[in-house]
């Protein structure tokens, strides 16, 4: 692997005062900057804070917000909260998985899409809800979401 640029990790560590108590926030900042938690970044954090990589690994795998694998350019999050569930969120997820030929939690080979499940985003009244790249789509239907996905696919082919 090419050498990893640790400068931005140092900036994140500095922002969080190099404090072990801020480990959750540090990992969140890395995830936000990189889209996932790259191993070299975590090794650098372990070394800088003087803690074991296992300790970091336990955090990274306990909290759902983190991914140890690179994620897609577009993140499609299907809300599986109770209200969305009773209004058919499962069927929408099935259709998205069918369209992208991946399961929830996976990323397409071309790194274009990652499909994720979330347990509630608080937009229950608008369920089922799908979040596409941060934009909340209420009263979602399989057709509505697959159209958005297909549009993105078409756009990426053009460019």
């Amino acid at each position: 692997m090419a050498s990893y640029d640790t400068a931005k990790i140092d900036a994140i560590l500095a922002k969080n005062e190099y404090a072990e108590a801020n480990l959750l926030a540090i990992l969140q900042d890395i995830q936000a900057a990189e889209g996932y938690l790259p191993r070299p970044a975590l090794e650098h954090v372990a070394k800088s804070l003087g803690i074991s990589i296992a300790r970091i690994y336990s955090m990274a795998t306990f909290y759902k917000a983190f991914s140890l694998k690179p994620r897609g350019k577009h993140i499609c999050t299907v809300c599986m909260g109770t209200a969305c569930h009773v209004r058919g969120a499962g069927r929408i997820l099935d259709k998205i998985e069918e369209n992208l030929k991946i399961k929830a939690g996976e990323t397409t080979k071309d790194l274009l899409f990652t499909v994720e499940r979330v347990n509630c985003v608080g937009a229950c009244a608008m369920g089922p809800v799908v979040i596409m790249d941060g934009e909340t789509i209420g009263n979602a239907t399989a057709n509505k979401i697959n159209k958005v996905i297909n549009d993105i696919k078409a756009d990426s082919k053009k460019s």
Binding site: A21, N22, L23, L24, M59, K64
Partner: peptide
């Protein structure tokens, strides 16, 4: 502000505190 990491159990008070302290919840 402390941002959560997407773990339901962290709504439990003692797990929440563990999480604020920088541990698994």
């Amino acid at each position: 502000i402390n941002r959560g990491g997407g773990a339901f159990v962290c709504g439990e008070s003692s797990a929440l505190i563990a999480s604020i302290e920088g541990f698994v919840g």
